[in-house]
């Protein structure tokens, strides 16, 4: 995994290969500008995203995690994102309860044609995560 270690905050994004990853591609080919803080990991479907990925990302020191898939109804595998939705919202809510600031875990639906939305999402995510500062959740001090 090639990590972007330069920009702060560091965000890891799990993007579904059919929609959000293609959306990111489109953002690139249509020369949309968005922050380069994002390290992208391609997953076959948002349904593949285990809550583990989110916590592992934070454990490895990423300041924020973005998960993104096809809009409801658009899943390449029919229902993958519906199932993902339950898991993602539960994870998000539960991590908030544990004490993880809600800004650190964000989710969005981005289709293959939404290059502009993708760029906007990344911009917003970076801004939100920056607002809560660097991720010290798993440091021994403090």
């Amino acid at each position: 995994m090639k990590q972007n270690t330069e920009e702060q905050p560091r965000i890891v994004g799990f993007l579904c290969k059919w929609c959000s990853y293609a959306g990111a591609d489109l953002a690139g080919t249509s020369r949309k500008k968005y922050p380069s803080n994002l390290t992208v990991l391609k997953v076959p479907c948002s349904g593949r995203i285990d809550p583990l990925f989110v916590l592992k990302g934070l454990r490895l020191g990423f300041d924020g995690v973005l998960v993104s898939g096809c809009h409801p109804g658009d899943c390449h595998y029919q229902t993958g994102n519906y199932r993902a939705r339950r898991r993602i919202v539960v994870t998000k809510k539960f991590l908030e309860y544990l004490g993880v600031p809600e800004q650190r875990v964000q989710a969005s639906w981005v289709s293959a044609s939404e290059g502009a939305k993708f760029a906007q999402v990344v911009e917003d995510v970076v801004e939100n995560v920056r607002a809560v500062g660097p991720n010290n959740l798993f440091s021994d001090e403090g």
Binding site: P72, T79, Y82, R86, A107, S108, W109
Partner: peptide
């Protein structure tokens, strides 16, 4: 399982 519309407002 899932509903077509649920958990609104948590995913943008």
């Amino acid at each position: 399982a899932y509903e077509l519309v649920e958990a609104e407002g948590l995913i943008r």
